[in-house]
Design a binder for these strands. Structure first.
Lengths: 340, 340
DNA sequence: GACATCGTTTGTAACGATACACAAGAGGAG
DNA sequence: CTCCTCTTGTGTATCGTTACAAACGATGTC
């Protein structure tokens, strides 16, 4: 920058203003600076130096619970992130995806990210990365988290929504099952019968399990009858194999309440493969109302994850406050559940 | 950092080493520093200052041709980015998505991104953002671009692949059509008959059009017979409405070669809605062999975009050179094309 | 003619960290 | 006992930028 100033015959501050606050310099000076910069191949202010002096980085950090590639492979994360990205584009702010691998180096990466705020996508309550985010002192929003000093959270009332759709799913059910996200960071797969919902450290999992339990008990059942199949990955094939396995057991299953449409669609495939009629022999519900839900006739919970991404990003950047009431949701009744 | 040094009773350099090169300090000193930092709530070295002094930012920049949200909505971009993200996670490097809106402020954003290299996802040859990337002087790779001084590129041989699948698509065709990506940054929709492929400024579009033309002319046809329907957005509904419109015209259409599986699946829906039999009344080909292609029986071109993302990211970070021969591709013959 | 006002320009002093060169002490080899 | 090496700790200069306050000439007002 000093070189440019010399070449342009002005002071460094004039050059700095020419780049940072063009309105502050005369057209004449601006032209001289532009010419000199071009001639010298000066690429503009060094972002690190600017961030150091100004105190803000001009970036929003996004932290994903587990592997970074999930962001691009999990359709729910993708929709949420599309909203976050929209806000960043509008605000002219960069979007920094912080790679989280689950190891000790995560804290260092979070700390070293040059950002002004964080948006965290659903993770477990005991995830150390939350401490790392908190330690940076940046404004941070956790989607699908548990409120905690210094960390704001946003998500729909998962328990209420799970109860509402559970009441539909469990109509006429005798052998209900739940297709669940992981219970905790171990991401252990397998079938658990009537697990203690409260022990799940992923808040989304915990709240939805609690809501399903509410619904089943209101229907007159006992939670200890319910098989919960935990799927490590949120994708169709996992749901399909889990349901195929349940269908093949002695106990059997006649109802599957899934925590995502992806898992539910997998359940429908397993049902078709086993020659079960839907909804009579097997009722299925999903969650999120993705584009594939309507064609499949899937009864599901609709929520707008993209709008939630927008809200989280705006809050993390200090553009707006977090919306006061929880985001809206609704049950979409289609044909994969039994009639009243 | 000076405060921490004082509290720990050591010099600032010891603190700096304790954070940056822990092996350089004794266990004793490291413990003292850690304790003092924790007590003072020191979050670790300021990333801007570090970047300023060290000269590198520890981030990889990703530039997307148009709106940032495409990254999360276009499945092809998502697969490519998953590969990029994988490399970043492994290398402990942050991933900065640079928001590009098409306006003049894009150059400023690119310039101000604190990154050590750029990966650019397919954009037009005349996109000013390429000049901005070049001006930063960072190592940069353009996926699906045209080689240019200072900018390396990576992509399969689109023209050869388009010719190969075109030869399958156009078997027995009399009224062929192409479902195309935009020709240039105007992203204008509409049907063009026998357009000059060379005038398309998106390299991917240009090369695939040229390949389809090669195939059709080898089949004995004239390019001026071919209707090219340009879809602004790479998604099923766009392909569906474009093909529905083509089917309703006097000229009609009996073959659709699409530049993506998404567009091709839209074409299949349009075909079903119009009561056309596939492949006899309407032959369809896609591109990319996405997960939905096999169930639909779609003849398509298979390429590994994720692996290409890995290669681009590694090259942009200087971890490896770009792979020398172009990435592999193959035609996957299924049931949406006519027999030989 | 004196004075306030305005738009523009300019020095100086940080911002927070690390590269580098050097010094002090511990230990080993001859 | 000397010399050399190795490990660990320390000052200083510097990275490139911008906040701030002060200075400048030109203009308009009384």
């Amino acid at each position: 920058m000093a070189d440019v100033a010399r070449a342009a015959g002005v002071s460094v501050m004039t050059v700095s203003y020419a780049f940072g606050q063009p309105a502050r310099v005369s057209a004449d000076a601006a032209a001289k600076v532009r010419r000199a910069a071009e001639q010298l191949g000066y690429p503009g202010p060094h972002p690190g130096a600017r961030s150091l002096r100004r105190g803000s980085a001009g970036n929003l950090g996004v932290v994903l619970g587990e592997h970074l590639t999930y962001a691009f492979e999990d359709p729910q994360a993708a929709r949420f992130l599309a909203g976050v990205a929209q806000v960043c584009a509008d605000a002219g702010v960069g979007l920094v995806l912080v790679p989280v691998t689950g190891g000790a180096e995560d804290a260092v990466r979070v700390q070293q990210s040059a950002v002004d705020g964080f948006v965290v996508w659903t993770t477990a309550d005991d995830d150390p990365v939350l401490d790392a985010v908190l330690a940076t002192g940046h404004r941070s929003i956790v989607h699908g988290g548990t409120a905690r000093a210094g960390l704001a959270t946003l998500s729909i009332d998962d328990r209420a929504a799970a109860r509402a759709i559970g009441l539909l799913a469990f109509r006429g059910a005798e052998r209900p099952a739940v297709l669940s996200f992981p219970l905790d960071r171990s991401r252990q797969q397998g079938v658990v019968v009537g697990p203690d919902a409260g022990s799940a450290t992923f808040p989304v999992t915990r709240n939805r399990l609690a809501g399903f339990r509410d619904a089943w008990e209101e229907t007159g059942g006992s939670w200890s009858q319910v098989q919960v199949a935990v799927c490590a990955v949120n994708a169709g094939p996992g749901g399909e194999s889990a349901v195929s396995a349940l269908l093949a057991t002695d106990v059997g299953v006649d109802t599957v309440a899934a925590m995502s449409d992806e898992l539910a669609l997998g359940a429908l495939q397993a049902s078709a493969a086993a020659g079960r009629s839907v909804p009579d022999a097997l009722a299925v519900t999903g969650w999120d109302d993705t584009v594939a839900a309507a064609p499949a006739g899937l009864t599901t919970v609709r929520q707008d994850l993209r709008a939630q991404g927008v809200a989280c990003a705006q809050a993390a950047l200090g553009i707006t406050e977090l919306p006061r009431p929880e985001p809206p949701w609704e049950v979409v009744l289609r044909s994969t559940t039994r009639g009243a």
